[in-house]
Amino acid sequence: MTEIRLVGTAHVSQKSVEDVRSAIEEFQPDIVGVELDRGRFISLTQETPDPTVTEILKGGNFGRLLVQWVLAFIQQRIGAETGVKPGAEMLAAIEEAEAHQRPVALIDRDIRITLSRFWGKMRIWEKIKLIGALIYSLVGVEGQEIDVDEFTNQDVVSAAMEEFRKFSPRGAQALIDERDAYLAHQLLMLGSRYERVLAVVGAGHIQGVQRYLDAPETLPPLQSLTADVKGLPWAKIIGAGVTLLFALLIAAIGFSGVGLDVLLAALVYWVLINGILSAVFTLLAGGHPFSAATAFGVSWLTSLNPALAAGWFAAIVEAKIRKPTTGELQQILKAETFSEMRRIPLFRVVLVAALANVGSTLGTFAYFIFIFPVLGIDPAVVVSDGFANMLQMLQGLL
């Protein structure tokens, strides 16, 4: 009869390292499953080259990349406080299994799939709250006493999981629930080939995985846990909507009869509002004045084209000036403070890219909110007269 035993760990806990070694020694499993995918296994056990700056810039999605880096930074800082390297318990499981001549199975979902589904499933408001919480954590983790071993206490873990669900229900589904199911799938497959299976997983997964092991019929299909998140391409839809709205607005002003000077002012303000906010946010990120000037120069155009982003252009200029090197990713993860991270050229480039885009987006919304008060015209009159005149012209042409 197959026996599957779970060991719950905290990722930066010396006690977890000892618990893993004791469990393998006592249980004598036929195979040890660890909560790692191939990529994390390689990075944990081997020296791997960092991605080049060009690869990072081509990858885009700078907001998600910053979240990933900040999460790694926070975990690294907690590990430094406790004297335990993140992932030490998984490494201990691998080494102990090899010492007992037992095979090791990688049972976690590919981290790229998890992050993609996590970010893709979260609503915009959840993403904003997450980024805010991470910024707060960058400050809060400094000098704070943390009892990491409490993170293996199931009452504490359950409370933390419930708080995260309130904070981001859809994020929790991708990060926790789906991985519970994926881990259970992998363990059941191992159980069909081995009699004694030991699984080393984060304490937050213990209850969910055990529920699925006790009732395998409730498991969702494995394919549904690895497929791309299908949904409406909101970024493209919103971008196209902005382009259409701006075109209609300019057309309405042009045909309303308020005068060419007002039309030109509307166009100038589009350039200024988008450009100034994008440039300001670039400077807030610590960007070079040339990068800010680039963001200012392109923001008005990128706001009208969903395929372009002001941050890409600002980041390219920033990279040319700062000249980051490939070895700086490890420096980012080993930084002592957020200020130290910001001084690393590679981090600065990505931060510039992300914040330039934020500034450009805010500029677009600000334009549509304030343009009529700034121009000193009544929007209802301009829109109604503009569209009435356009309709009359079209009827005349037909």
Rank of each mutant, 00 (worst) to 15 (best):
M393G: 09
N357L: 05
R196P: 08
K85Q: 13
A235R: 11
H100K: 14
Y194M: 05
S291A: 15
E98R: 15
F246L: 14
L130F: 13
V70Q: 03
I206P: 00
L134I: 08
I146E: 08
L138V: 09
D110K: 02
L65G: 00
L304Q: 11
A88K: 01
I238K: 06
A292Q: 04
S16P: 09
L219F: 08
G241L: 12
Q144P: 03
A319Y: 00
V262N: 09
T48Q: 07
E35L: 04
A279I: 05
Q210E: 15
V271I: 15
P51F: 00
Q76F: 04
E328L: 01
Q144E: 12
S339D: 15
S303R: 06
P103L: 05
A227C: 06
V53Y: 01
A133V: 11
L355Q: 13
G239I: 04
E96S: 13
G83V: 12
N389Q: 13
Q76S: 15
I56Q: 00
K323Q: 15
R170P: 02
E145W: 07
V352N: 00
G132V: 06
L187G: 04
I131K: 06
A295W: 04
P220L: 05
I176M: 13
F62A: 06
A159D: 14
G359C: 10
F62I: 07
L394T: 08
F296H: 04
A314V: 04
L106Y: 10
E178F: 01
H11E: 02
V298G: 01
K334W: 02
D149W: 11
V7N: 05
A307P: 02
A307H: 07
K129G: 02
V67N: 04
V156M: 07
L106V: 10
Q392N: 12
Q210I: 07
L232H: 14
E55Q: 15
F151W: 09
N305R: 09
G171M: 05
